[in-house]
Amino acid sequence: MRSSYLPIAIAVAVLAVLPLGTSSNTTLNFLSFALIVALAAQGWNILGGYGGQFSFGHAAFFGTGAYGMALLQVRFGINPWLALPLATLMGAAVGAAIGALSFRARLRGSYFALVTLAFAEVFRILANAWGFTGGAAGVLVPLRIEAANMQFADRATFYWLVLACVAAGLVLTQAMARARFGAWLVAVRENEEAARALGVDSLAVKLRAITLSSGITALAGGLYAQKFLYLDAGIAYGSWISVEALLAPIIGGLGTVFGPLVGALVLLGLGEATKIALGHALGGAVPGVDLVVFGVLLILCVAFAPRGLLGLGANVRRLLRRPV
């Protein structure tokens, strides 16, 4: 069933030609940022959407990826093309460690959510205090525009790099969903006890899921660091990314391949549009108005589209197909 990858190819192709229609740096920056959030959300979706383990602290992985990317370059002089996979592995290791601690202790549901939130906050406070991470001043990656240095003169190039990672995330998610691991992960989400009776090692499945999930989110963090070349604890380990990484799949469609991408584009697109519209209307920026939009979207989704926008789309298609 290779045809199940066709929608991914189409979506990636459409996203790939977007930069050709614009030369605006603001638009390209926004699109790159939206795809970075989408990638972080793809990571969250593997553990939260497919595995049913809701993390409120994916900032812990995003931040580890971001700080890993920045510090490996600044402190150790490692080339960014090598630093990015290393930062991804560091994030995955942090995920495996947090998973081992919390899943072995049989934490689930809101307890698991609270523990992940706590880990992310601890990391934020440590990164803010420690000299090695630059403390409250943050770290600055020196500007040196060279392809070999993963810094590009044309903003579209970095956008395509991020898009390649998102595409890999889509393919990985689709492959996982169709593999034995995906079936077992969903089984653990639906009913852990029944899954164990069928020979599923639920602890091992959850540990693999959180490792994969945190690695992908750390990759997004690494890309973020390289895109903006500046980090502080509030950006890298801030709760904003934990929230956006979980809101995007919920709004797009939990446990679906495209949910995180669709959710991130809609969420950030509407947030940005509202900011611009209100800015024009009131003659000045209204800080935080995008958060209001996020809140309204979440309420609308929970009330009217509990399976997300993709679920809503499927319902509408079924209604249209039904003979009147």
């Binding site: 089984a187 989400r189 639906e190 009913n191 029944a194 899954a195 009776a197």
Partner: peptide
């Protein structure tokens, strides 16, 4: 084993 109180994976 089966379960006395049935435990289907309801979403599947």
């Amino acid at each position: 084993r089966t379960f006395q109180i049935v435990q289907p994976f309801a979403g599947l």
